[in-house]
Amino acid sequence: MPSSSRQTVTVDLSDRSYDIVIGDGVLDEAGARVAPLMGKGPRRVITVTDENVAGLHLARYRAALAAEGIESLDIILPPGEQTKSWQYLELVLEKTLAARIDRGTLMVAFGGGVIGDLAGFAAALALRGIDYVQIPTTLLAQVDSSVGGKTAIDTPQGKNLVGAFHQPKLVLADTGLLATLSERHRRAGFAEVIKYGLIREHCFYEWCAANGNAAIAGDAALLAEAVRRSCEHKADVVQQDEFETTGLRALLNLGHTFGHALEAETGYSERLLHGEAVAIGMVMAFDLSHRMGLVSGQSAGRVKQALASLGMPVDLAALPGLTVDALTAHMAKDKKVKAGTLRFVLVREIGEAFAGSEAPADLVGAVLRDAGAVG
């Protein structure tokens, strides 16, 4: 039975509203929480996960479903960003359709951001849209990618360039699962936590700077607090700008224009995790904002120092050989390009970001060179 001690954040989207249920042990309640969302057909769900998550958590998840008489057809994929591709999207859809689903069939995305994005996109496409549930297993997915309905795959042209807005029916964020992550992956995920403070709440930035290392080390209470507060911020933004039409939701991309270019140039590999790329990108965004006369050098320096003190990369020292030309070429393919002009999320102060600003190419190049890019 669901525990009354859970923390719940609601994403209020009228008839498409849904809850984010947060707490240690939420996975054991998956059956009881998923059952009310199912149609009248067979008590069966399609579960998309990866080999790592399956090895750690699939038996426990299946037991939670079985307790409510629910079966799972499991689609187990390789881990890693490379799985967010046409190849695996086709595989998921073929297996899903071969299971003779109907529009009452429920899909479950059980994994990190890659699985959540891929499975959510597959759910958006199957039968022109079936319901799905997010069960994020990483800190990054719990605080960011599982919430808000952005689904996508990567293509040779860039990251997340093919996708759809498709809101989940429920998000189950079991903070106990975060103990199975490496400290590096918790640290990378925490970059997306502190991002909320940098874009919209200075006091949350200060909380992250003060408590981040303890949370990253595995303090369960601090991790739960980080997830809850991050989800509250994400829900508030999504409620106001679900389809990224007003510019508010675009603020969540602070550091991502630089970060996605870094990920592409390093081959979407373990060489540079998404959160690590975002950390470097946020430092670059503050540096660019300073060079454009928008934010003080003192504030930009404080952010760089804070991220470094949390053990996050803040430059390209560990990534030798990246060139300005290659990185700017990747940025030219970014989704935020409009009429051939690349627009950045920039800042006026810590906790005060704004979107849609152009930046001179020479200043972007200077930022990249000062961070360690060649050329």
Rank of each mutant, 00 (worst) to 15 (best):
21 V>W: 05
293 G>T: 11
149 G>W: 05
251 L>P: 00
372 G>R: 04
155 T>Q: 10
91 L>Q: 13
4 S>M: 11
265 E>T: 11
10 T>N: 06
359 A>G: 14
193 V>W: 01
173 A>P: 03
176 G>L: 04
265 E>Y: 08
16 R>W: 02
235 A>W: 06
247 G>I: 13
318 A>H: 03
31 G>Y: 00
44 R>S: 11
116 G>M: 10
332 A>C: 12
54 A>H: 04
224 A>W: 01
218 G>H: 12
57 H>S: 15
329 A>T: 15
97 L>T: 04
113 G>E: 09
69 G>F: 02
21 V>N: 01
275 G>S: 06
163 G>M: 12
116 G>T: 05
196 Y>P: 09
216 I>N: 07
295 V>G: 10
17 S>K: 07
297 G>F: 09
142 Q>F: 05
34 V>N: 07
261 A>L: 01
239 Q>V: 10
75 I>H: 06
17 S>M: 10
158 G>E: 14
290 H>P: 07
174 D>L: 13
332 A>P: 06
283 V>A: 12
258 F>W: 10
110 F>K: 11
169 K>E: 08
224 A>N: 13
306 A>I: 02
58 L>T: 08
190 F>R: 05
309 S>K: 14
349 E>K: 14
144 D>F: 07
191 A>S: 15
62 R>P: 03
82 Q>W: 03
298 Q>Y: 11
290 H>K: 12
89 L>E: 12
54 A>Y: 02
313 P>V: 05
28 D>G: 15
